[in-house]
């Protein structure tokens, strides 16, 4: 609840800032803003075409963590760190490896490529030294499973976010 509130407030602030600049008398800025608006339109169109909504790492609400550094996030989704700081088991949920959302998640959030994640899981699973993450078929299933499973972590497009999951931010390093 608090997270959603902060997000809305942040967006509103950004909008206000933009308007403030627009009202000023800086022709260059206006030009730049014009270009930005065209950019936004293009972005909007591409997102309509590819459904490329922003992604967030999400967790079950009982997970006390709201922020992870990149290394730890990679360890968790790489199935190498199996416990949250309070000792509860981590349950990792992912979409199918060739889904666009999964590919984007790997790249944007973990800064690795989806094939690298798959290789890392395969090495664990087929050498008997680890286990694979739980795979879900749809985004809706991901939302439900993360909401319902204690210790769960996954990822969701922005438009699937509800108040019943927490968002985990990747800490800037």
């Amino acid at each position: 609840m608090a997270d959603t509130f902060f997000r809305h407030r942040y967006r509103r602030q950004r909008r206000l800032e933009c308007m403030r600049i627009e009202r000023g008398h800086f022709p260059f800025l206006r030009l730049a803003l014009g270009a930005r608006r065209i950019g936004q339109v293009v972005l909007f169109l591409t997102s309509v075409v590819t459904h490329a909504a922003a992604l967030e790492i999400t967790a079950n609400q009982d997970v006390g963590v709201r922020e992870l550094d990149l290394t730890t996030a990679r360890l968790i989704f790489g199935m190498r760190l199996l416990k949250w700081p309070d000792g509860t088991p981590v349950r990792v949920f992912v979409l199918e490896g060739d889904s666009d959302i999964h590919q984007r998640f790997a790249k944007e959030k973990l800064q690795v490529f989806a094939y690298q994640l798959q290789q890392a899981w395969d090495r664990l699973v087929f050498s008997g030294t680890g286990q694979a993450p739980n795979q879900v078929a749809t985004v809706e299933e991901m939302r439900k499973r993360v909401t319902m499973t204690p210790g769960a972590i996954g990822y969701l497009p922005d438009d699937y976010l509800r108040d019943d999951v927490s968002i985990i931010e990747i800490k800037a390093q």
């Binding site: 199996l82 416990k83 000792g87 088991p89 699973v125 087929f126 008997g128 680890g130 286990q131």
Partner: peptide, 10 residues
């Protein structure tokens, strides 16, 4: 090949 794994505790 077929394999099984079990994590009784983390």
């Amino acid at each position: 090949g077929v394999n099984g794994s079990w994590r009784p505790q983390q």
